[in-house]
């Protein structure tokens, strides 16, 4: 061994991987946060439904609270959180 690696500090960035750029409820980009939050990131996460549609968690929770039936606002299927 000519050269050994003693330690390594990695630097990486993360971003959401969603099937769309914008949240279907608030129309804000997923990289940004829902209108009620100030900072994007862990405080304003995304959630996926069983139907594969994706929203800000705050947006979909608000939507579900306001509806008599628990349906996905995009496809009208019954909404289930997809916990993979």
């Amino acid at each position: 061994m000519k050269v050994t690696v003693k330690s390594w500090t990695g630097v990486a960035t993360w971003r959401w991987v969603a099937n769309d750029d914008n949240c279907g409820i608030c129309r804000m980009p997923f990289d940004s946060c829902c209108p009620d939050c100030k900072l994007p990131g862990d405080d304003c996460p995304l959630v996926w439904g069983a139907c594969s549609h994706c929203f800000h968690i705050h947006c979909i929770v608000k939507w579900l609270h306001s509806q008599p039936q628990q349906q996905c606002p995009m496809c009208r299927q019954d909404w289930k959180f997809n916990n993979k």
Binding site: K2, V3, T4, V5, K6, W8, V11, A12, T13, W48
Partner: peptide, 26 residues
């Protein structure tokens, strides 16, 4: 590990910012 811990996030390495500590033996 990251994929298992966090749902729906993609990692991208910033190699020019990573630092490795090496020791020469030659």
């Amino acid at each position: 590990f990251y994929r298992a811990s966090f749902n729906g996030r993609r990692l991208a390495w910033l190699h020019h910012l990573c630092t490795g500590d090496l020791r020469t033996r030659y």
